[in-house]
């Protein structure tokens, strides 16, 4: 069978993903995570009497810790699965990606296992995060001069 014709057959029998439903779930869960982060920032800056930029660092550390802990407890993957991209895109997803890879390779040694594989998924987040921060920072400097 010709490849184009076969592609049509495959498409006919392939179920459509429910994009709208998945997006809405990701939107609401992601939004809730944002709300949680903002509440944490407010709470830290109120109770510890620290400026907002310091409180936001505390918030990030808290969410990373909670994300890693939940991954280690073994049920965060089910939440991630149910929430589509709602938990992966925020900072909890970054922590979860690192911790799940570390758990997977923990029996293969500290250096060759955990060290070499921990950033298997998270590595690209760091690389493209840094590159895009640089590019957008530069754009801001050129366009707005600050």
């Amino acid at each position: 069978m010709e490849k184009n014709k076969y592609k049509e057959v495959v498409n006919r029998h392939t179920p459509k993903e429910n994009v709208l439903y998945n997006t809405m779930i990701a939107f609401f869960v992601g939004g809730l995570m944002g709300l949680l982060g903002q509440l944490l920032i407010d709470a830290y800056s109120y109770y510890f009497s620290i400026p907002t930029n310091q409180a936001s660092i505390f918030m990030i550390v808290t969410l990373i810790f909670v994300g890693c802990l939940l991954t280690c407890l073994g049920f965060f993957d089910k939440w991630v699965h149910a929430c589509k991209c709602g938990l992966i895109v925020p900072i909890t997803g970054f922590a979860h990606a690192m911790m799940s890879a570390a758990l997977e390779y923990r029996k293969e040694g500290l250096v060759t296992g955990i060290g070499a594989n921990m950033f298997k998924l998270a590595g690209s987040v760091i690389i493209f995060g840094v590159v895009s921060a640089y590019v957008f920072g530069l754009l801001r400097l050129i366009l707005f001069g600050c």
Binding site: F76, D77, I88, S100
Partner: peptide, 17 residues
């Protein structure tokens, strides 16, 4: 899963197929 896809505990969404 470990060899061909993502870490097992990652649990990212997958297509129906």
């Amino acid at each position: 899963e470990k060899q061909f896809r993502y870490p097992v505990e990652y649990g990212g969404p997958k297509p129906k197929t």
